[in-house]
Design a protein around this nucleic acid. Structure first.
Length: 270
DNA sequence: TTGACACCTTGC
DNA sequence: CAAGGTGTCA
């Protein structure tokens, strides 16, 4: 049981509501969140964070870094327009959840879906096991697709169960995924039904720590067209254009590419 | 390589 | 009627 003070520069509510994780919610005056079996509570008034893990791990999870202004300045130097967003949003953290199972399940649920429903689906899955925490991949692999449909997963029920079963055939699937580099991880993940480029890149960025992964959703597509490729406005997001966007942002921002993606996404979000 | 379409639910 | 896409098929 750990309690610590969160620096004023870090914006926890902004960070945990930015679509990187889905099990945070406001309860009265405070915020409560969960990552796998780890629990969090935060009081915005006192800026105190309470957690069942240790402070180092909690800060890593939240994407807290010591030099957010340096990162913002670094980005501003590479592209002043994006840098202005970075300076304004320097309290936004790039999260690193420890539960890879939760990240995979969450983003499997994210396709063609609302954040509010993604949250409901993940919460219901956790509640279905009584513990209230994310079940193991083994437990998920043993679920029936009907059970998940009853929990509101819709057609993604098949994706989740099949993905779990496929991963489990790897034997030590988590260690296996973590040995890959960014591209290798994406290739491996995309072999699973229900995981395309976008979902694979989300898992690589948030779940596997590949900070140069660039998930491209419809919001980032619009923002990218606005800033970098006006001729693409109104066109469709093809696989080729998708990969060109990631390559370009990596050329421009290097290992900050994933964070730039988050900034742009968060900015466009209502 | 590109575009078109269906797909479970739910929130607006 | 669209939502942080993906699979499938011309």
């Amino acid at each position: 049981l750990t309690e610590f003070f969160v620096e004023p520069l870090f914006d926890l509510p902004l960070t945990v509501t930015s679509g990187q994780v889905f099990r945070w919610k406001r309860v009265g005056r405070e915020w409560r969140g969960a990552d796998g079996a780890i629990e969090y509570r935060y009081d915005p008034g006192s800026r105190m964070l309470w957690t069942t893990t240790d402070e180092i791990s909690a800060r890593s999870y939240l994407g807290f870094i010591d030099d957010p202004l340096d990162r913002a300045e670094r980005i501003r130097r590479l592209d002043p327009r994006i840098g202005d967003l970075a300076c304004a949003g320097s309290g936004l953290g790039l999260m690193q959840p420890t539960s890879l199972t939760e990240t995979i399940v969450s983003f499997l649920c994210s396709s063609n879906n609302h954040i509010s429903r993604i949250t409901r689906m993940v919460e219901r899955l956790c509640d279905a096991f009584g513990s209230g925490s994310m079940p193991s991949m083994e437990a998920i692999g043993q679920l029936g697709t009907k059970q998940l449909r009853d929990l509101g997963f819709g057609y993604r029920a098949e994706f989740v169960v099949e993905a779990a079963q496929r991963l489990l055939t790897l034997g030590n699937w988590e260690a296996s995924l973590r040995t890959h580099d960014r591209h290798g991880a994406r290739e491996a993940l995309m072999r699973l039904k229900g995981i395309g480029r976008k979902v694979a890149d989300c898992i690589a960025l948030y779940g596997l720590g590949h900070y140069d992964a660039v998930p491209v959703d419809v919001h980032l597509w619009r923002a990218y067209c606005h800033f970098y490729e006006p001729t693409w406005r109104g066109r469709s997001l093809t696989a080729k254009r998708y990969d060109a966007i990631g390559d370009n942002l990596r050329d421009r921002f290097g290992m900050d590419a994933g964070y730039v993606q988050l900034l742009l996404y968060r900015t466009v979000l209502t």
